[in-house]
């Protein structure tokens, strides 16, 4: 299997395993683990300026007031 395909397969296998974990544990239990990832991602997110962010999203049609 070529590397990108292997990587894709591994990612999909992980998703299936994670779903099995969720289904076999309480909402409280799995969400604690997921929240570590999401909260830390938000905490470490680089806060662009509006212009930088819109440019990044290719939505800077008009200058921001």
């Amino acid at each position: 299997m070529a590397e990108p395909e292997l990587n894709k397969k591994q990612r999909e296998d992980f998703i299936v395993q994670w779903v099995n974990f969720i289904k076999s544990h309480s909402d409280e239990e799995w969400s604690k683990q997921q929240n570590i990832l999401i909260n830390s991602q938000l905490k470490s997110a680089h806060q662009f300026t509006r212009e930088e962010y819109l440019k990044f999203k290719q939505e800077l049609n008009n200058p921001v007031d």
Binding site: D27, E28, W30, S31, N35, I38, N39
Partner: peptide, 9 residues
């Protein structure tokens, strides 16, 4: 009904 702990998002 979702009884998960809520995150900042």
């Amino acid at each position: 009904i979702l009884k998960r702990e809520l995150n900042e998002l």
